[in-house]
Design a protein around this nucleic acid. Structure first.
Length: 260
DNA sequence: TGGAATGTTCGGCT
DNA sequence: AAGCCGAACATTCC
């Protein structure tokens, strides 16, 4: 569910409500959610003060007075303030005056405590701060361009929705080998990716199935999608029906006329 | 009922 | 050795 724009929206909502507050207590309701944490999460964060909230790609980084809480929402993770516990609540954080719940039915998400930043070390630069270097890197690869946009080691933050939307705007067929796209077009794609992500942040992300922010509010960028989840519907540019196929094991939406 | 779902990681092959 | 691909993870929803 959450890609860069959705995670950014959550971080912006989270920051003013938890920065400067203390984590009085915490509870992990399902051990799977802390499977990557080398240190005990509850022991690590209890009593700590929240110094800052950041984001790298799709990871939420919460700096504590001592250590770091790293949260990834996976496919179905949600952080919610002051809501009722559900059967899918996996963690509870009690702060000075608020309660934050982590809900995640599918449990692809994760919560980790560490003394230093290590989880995001293998990620490439955040998608909102990329440049020509990334373009150069992409042009050496033979994989389909879409697969590379989803590869968080090259740059981090783009998921299935924004990969499809960016490739549509760039007029590039998602299955095209990266090394067969011209230098100019690859450079333009990098710019377009950042434009799409920035616009999506402005619209508070895309709520395709069940994405909501920390207050339960939906985003509205889904109303501006050109291709994602629009298979069979006319292309906004040429009217040709949008097609859906599978590329790199992921559902992929594109206009067969506009994207070559 | 089977298939697909907005993500990441791991193992195997080239 | 690096890159590419498919499988696996767990659950809900259509």
């Amino acid at each position: 569910m959450p890609e860069l724009p959705e995670v950014e929206t959550i971080v912006r909502a989270l920051t003013p409500r938890i920065r400067g507050r203390h984590i009085l207590s915490a509870e992990i309701l399902h051990q799977r959610i802390v499977r990557y944490s080398k240190l005990d999460v509850v022991a690590g964060i209890t009593g700590q003060k929240v110094e800052n909230v950041r984001r790298h790609g799709k990871f939420i980084l919460i700096d504590l007075s001592q250590g770091l809480l790293t949260i990834h929402l996976g496919m179905t993770g949600q952080l919610l303030f002051n809501t009722q516990r559900t059967p899918w609540t996996r963690a509870i954080f009690n702060l000075d005056d608020t309660q934050l719940l982590y809900d995640d039915p599918r449990m692809f998400g994760s919560i980790e405590f560490s003394t230093a930043e290590y989880r995001t070390r293998s990620l490439g630069p955040d998608a909102l701060s990329i440049n020509e270097d990334v373009s150069t890197k992409l042009r050496k690869r033979r994989a389909p361009i879409k697969s590379l946009l989803l590869n968080q080691r090259i740059f981090a933050g783009v998921g299935n929705i924004y990969a499809d939307e960016a490739l549509f705007r760039a007029g590039i067929y998602p299955g095209r080998r990266a090394d067969r796209i011209s230098n100019a077009r690859t450079a333009r794609l990098i710019e377009i990716i950042q434009e799409v992500l920035t616009e999506a942040v402005d619209y508070r992300g895309s709520s395709v199935s069940d994405y909501v922010d920390t207050e339960g509010r939906k985003g509205s960028f889904q109303n501006r999608h050109n291709v994602y989840s629009r298979d069979g519907q006319p292309c906004t540019t040429c009217g040709t029906p949008i097609r859906k196929t599978v590329i790199g094991q992921r559902g992929t939406h594109y206009c067969p006329n506009c994207q070559k």
